[in-house]
Nucleic acid binder design. Structure first.
Length: 599
RNA sequence: GGUCCGGUAGCUCAGUUGGAUAGAGCAUCAGCCUUCUAAGCUGAGGGUCAUUGGUUCGAAUCCAAUCCGGAUCACCA
């Protein structure tokens, strides 16, 4: 239990003991961290009790405070300031906490439980490379999965690849028309980029052909319908669905190029998947569910044979589930995939990391499954995040205005290199070590930039302004970590020393304010981690780590560790910074961000 | 128009189940390297928490209305 929770419990017990005749409502006691300008560590607000007990704040505060000091094992003293009861926690409590946890590499984690959770993320299309917007999805999904793992869930990370459909045929037809057999090898570029180039090419040609049609007297709509390249793409889709060998072979070849490219990107991003789904396998799923829905009369058929569900009583519309010709639409296969996931892995929960533009779709998906009494319905959770936009508006891959993910990674690593060299911090590294360091700093900055904001808020990224390496950044946290490692190296102390190293240490001196701040923050890590898990919000960890690193930097500036006032202080501080580094490493690792030992 | 999300310092964002004088970073200005890494630290300026009303000991936080911005409401995916 966290200290704050212990204090809350102690205060509740105190109230019941002091006023046995009063029936207190649940959660009447609020425990907050004491503001820095007041003495004490945690604060109990007295106002809620005053009316109930007909007491004045000072009188009541003394009663509770005295009782806590006398009977609780953690409160050393108290002070009442205008209705707030400020409690000081015994130094011995902080010290015991530090001794127990300072070298616990699993501090904050929750033991493994039985329920299994799937996190579906990334889920790219195979007609273009990953862009900056995908990165937010990928980091968010990966970090959420890792955070859930750390809090005891059994996580299945899944990637549902959109590998079929008209948009895939567009790149295929443009390649067929214009590539002259070009391959990633012949062009010397990544396969996903090559295919993406032909997707852009398709749209250029399409636009051109539409304009031509209009100039020949067609309406815009006619011209769009009759553009030769679009007709060819549609024909190609029909051939694909019919299983035409030549089309299938081209499809497989080009998709394989894309997968090779994605593999390189995913590897560099440091993310992985336990399960891959392909829409070419799943796009026919869901029809069975629709049939059952008709039997259960949850769905209805219109005269043209199309199948619908009426969601108007839920404030939504009627939604189509099968076309008149019996073919399925997007949501049909999603119904089937939802069930497939659930049956295959016996999921307690199925999380979809998808941008907020699909809020309505996900709401409908869950609602339909619920109306059909599918057991998977309740476990579906849409982790909705805001889109990343450019100052000029949304990124459009069709128009080639996207910030490419691979380019962005290169740019960040280049920036890390430039700034490291500028700061003159390259001494004492081998070339290989420097390469690795630049990657660690550049990728860390990129991930932190995208994870530090509340997922549901949309972001605007200006490519003209590079991502900062100062202030509220991964670099700042990495720097604090590297400083700690540097001290430990000089003290010949490992990052995770054996407990015996500080066993003889006893506490005889007061904990100083700058030390106390670290104690308080470290003790709160488990509850921060739990919040991040419960709210599917990695930004909680980013904020926490930044604050912890900041507190360390102030501490570092104010007090010497190696040349502490005496041995006791030195050892105490070593334990403190060992644990600080350990917690920073732990939390950032969950976000996929590495902490260098030297920078 | 319906539904949903957002609006906090010049910019980017924190702000816990309502709690003390609303906090960081960037940018601006002023200090701090002979001492464990200055990618750092200390300080200053900068606010009608979109607006109005309500709930109460207390509201950025809860409720209602309004304004502004965005997403979505396809026999597309």
């Amino acid at each position: 239990m966290t200290l704050a929770a212990q204090l809350k419990l102690a205060a509740e017990q105190t109230l019941h003991k002091l006023f046995p005749e009063i029936d207190f409502p649940a959660n009447i006691v609020t425990v907050n961290q004491t503001k820095p300008e007041f003495p004490g560590d945690y604060t109990i607000v007295l106002f809620p009790f005053l009316k109930l007990l007909r007491q004045k704040p000072d009188t009541l505060g003394i009663l509770i405070g005295d009782h806590l000091v006398a009977h609780s094992s953690i409160v050393s003293s108290y002070q009442i300031v205008s209705g707030f009861l400020n409690l000081a926690v015994k130094d011995s409590v902080w010290f015991a906490f530090l001794q127990n946890q300072f070298n616990n590499p699993h501090f904050g984690e929750i033991p493994r439980q039985d329920n299994r959770v799937m996190v579906e993320y990334s889920s790219p299309n195979t007609n273009k490379p990953l862009h900056f917007g995908h990165l937010r999805n990928i980091f968010l999904g990966f970090a959420t999965g890792e955070i859930l793992k750390a809090t005891g869930q059994q996580v299945v990370k899944a990637n549902l690849v959109n590998d079929r459909g008209i948009h895939i045929c567009k790149s295929m037809i443009a390649w067929k028309r214009y590539a002259n057999g070009a391959t990633p090898q012949s062009e010397g570029i990544k396969g996903d980029h090559l295919v993406g180039d032909y997707y852009v090419k398709f749209n250029d040609v399409y636009k051109h052909e539409v304009a031509e049609g209009v100039s020949k007297g067609m309406t815009q709509e006619e011209a769009e319908k009759n553009a030769p390249i679009m007709k060819e793409a549609q024909e190609m889709l029909r051939q694909w669905e019919a299983g035409d060998p030549e089309t299938r072979t081209l499809w497989q070849t080009m998709n394989a190029w894309v997968y090779d490219g994605f593999k390189v990107s995913y590897c560099r991003l440091g993310v992985d998947f336990d399960k891959w789904y392909y829409e070419s396998d799943t796009y026919l799923l869901g029809k069975k569910i629709v049939e059952e829905g008709l039997k259960k009369e949850v769905l209805f058929k219109k005269s043209d044979g199309s199948v619908w569900i009426d969601l108007t009583t839920d404030g939504l519309d009627e939604k189509l589930l099968l076309r008149g010709d019996g073919t399925s639409v997007y949501i049909t296969q999603d119904l089937g995939t939802a069930k497939l996931k659930f049956d295959e892995f016996k999921l307690a929960q199925s999380i979809y990391v998808i941008a907020d533009e699909q809020n309505y779709h996900m709401q409908v998906l869950k609602l339909i499954l619920k109306k059909m009494n599918e057991p998977c319905a309740d476990g579906i959770f849409h982790l909705s995040y805001g889109m990343v936009e450019l100052p000029s508006g949304r990124m459009k891959s069709r128009e080639g205005t996207v910030v490419d993910a691979d380019d962005m990674m290169d740019e960040m690593v280049r920036l890390a290199k430039e700034q490291t060299e500028q700061a003159g911090k390259t001494e004492g590294f081998t070339t290989d070590e420097l390469t690795k360091l630049y990657e660690t700093i550049g990728m860390g900055a990129l991930k932190f930039y995208l994870l530090r904001v509340d997922p549901k808020k949309k972001m605007i990224f200006d490519p003209k302004e590079s991502i900062d390496l100062h202030g509220f950044t991964a670099t700042f946290i990495q720097y604090a970590h590297a400083r700690i490692c540097s001290i430990l190296r000089k003290e010949n102390c490992p990052l995770m020393p054996d407990s015996s190293r500080f066993q003889s240490l006893t506490l005889s001196q007061n904990i100083l304010p700058a030390e106390k701040k670290l104690f308080v923050s470290l003790e709160q890590y488990p509850s921060v981690l739990l919040t991040a898990a419960e709210e599917y919000n990695p930004s909680a960890l980013c904020n926490y780590c930044f604050q912890l690193a900041q507190q360390f930097n102030s501490f570092y500036d104010e007090h010497s560790i190696s040349k502490a006032e005496n041995e006791e202080k030195k050892h105490l501080r070593l334990m403190l910074i060992i644990m600080t580094a350990s917690v920073l490493r732990h939390a950032m690792q969950l976000c996929g961000i590495r902490m260098p030992e030297k920078m």
